[in-house]
Design a protein around this nucleic acid. Sequence first.
DNA 1: CGATCGCTTGATTCCGATCAACAGGAGTGG
DNA 2: CCACTCCTGTTGATCGGAATCAAGCGATCG
Lengths: 234, 234
Amino acid sequence: MRAQARQLSAAADIHSAAMNLAGLPPAAGRDTAFHASLALMGAKLPYARNQEIYGQDEPAEFVYRLVSGSVRTYKLLDDGRRQVGAFYLPGDIFGLESGATHRFAAEAIGDTIVLAVKRSTLAALAQTDATIARELWQMTARELDHVHDQLVLLGRSSAQERVASFLVEMSKRSQSDGGFELPMSRQDIADYLGLTIETVSRTLSQMERKAFIELPTSRKVRIKNQAALSRMQS
Amino acid sequence: MRAQARQLSAAADIHSAAMNLAGLPPAAGRDTAFHASLALMGAKLPYARNQEIYGQDEPAEFVYRLVSGSVRTYKLLDDGRRQVGAFYLPGDIFGLESGATHRFAAEAIGDTIVLAVKRSTLAALAQTDATIARELWQMTARELDHVHDQLVLLGRSSAQERVASFLVEMSKRSQSDGGFELPMSRQDIADYLGLTIETVSRTLSQMERKAFIELPTSRKVRIKNQAALSRMQS
DNA sequence: CGATCGCTTGATTCCGATCAACAGGAGTGG
DNA sequence: CCACTCCTGTTGATCGGAATCAAGCGATCG
């Protein structure tokens, strides 16, 4: 994070606001005043595969908008067990905290570019602009909704249901026609769903055997029977 | 909820602001401007044991502060599986949503009294008062933190770890010296921890046999070895 | 071309679920 | 007051789904 801080200052100097706006994919509900502000104020930062963006319990200095690549957030237990909190795809905001520190660590899954904005800047904006304040709140509330769904998944669902839900979620978020790419490994998926890699792998194979999905490569998924998959979610 | 709406209007007429402020137990971090406003504007509402306060996906018209009794929020799956999202104790706020509807249902566990405040009132306040806006956001963020911990519990912890965490959490929140009361049933605990009643019961018995806790009655817990319990949490 | 990494598949184990029985209260009505 | 039922919780026996242990298979890369 020390090296990153240096990078950030450099990037802020180099990139103009206009440049930072470029290349962002359109996404529903994302063309808000808040998002616009983010783009105007942010500095582009590159992260390599598996590089830490911030650590658990680190001061939350920046908020991030994912430009390209993908990100996972997670908590680690002493004995190495890991719980992935969320995956972020291009256009997503992450690292937004109301408190002082990040409760989850964040890592780039593949090579990734993010737009980083100082939290203090947003806080100042929110102080005078009720719209910004509301959008910050809504963003946290949306995360809460998502994690609430995850609760049901982890607490009361079978392996099949978890994997089905995961595929449906990823499919939706990738607005893909004819298959989508999974940026994360089987281990990432397992740690997200509270399963083991073996169970995830087996369940996917099983779904392929039933012709609900197709796996041209291990990272590429094509849903062949959306209805069946949706029914599996429960 | 139809009957309750009538009750609310009546209560708002009857109870004065001063009356509503009475009898609230002091709680850390709760003497905020927001809480004060809540008390001033709220109407007291009584709910009987197991009575619904609001349903899942119902419009979020009110925000609640628990005066006495206790509340559980939960999601229900088609086949009857239930995931309890949280338990609320006197002094806690619940039912706060940023979106239009409640994502979890809420029920009184025992006989309960709540203070209900119109969401629109808070929204109006937040529009002009950045402090209120920030407190609403923080409240949602605190829920998010809690649910994040719950994620790790449900995704990556053993039955023993879950029950130990639950006891430690309840103990803290009940600021009890010499044991505390569990307002909720074994089924409630099981649905909160993603376990079955049998497993919860067995695990508690086991902890009692190891002399980590004492169970004078099934609803009363006394922690005899805090250190051991904390170590079990993982 | 050997080595490593990510993934899949098979065999076995084990933790928690399920099925089942029973005990202790609380509430009800005779 | 007792007899009854209902409800909640505990405990035992068995089962099953996912974890664990283990092996092997490409693909990628130095």
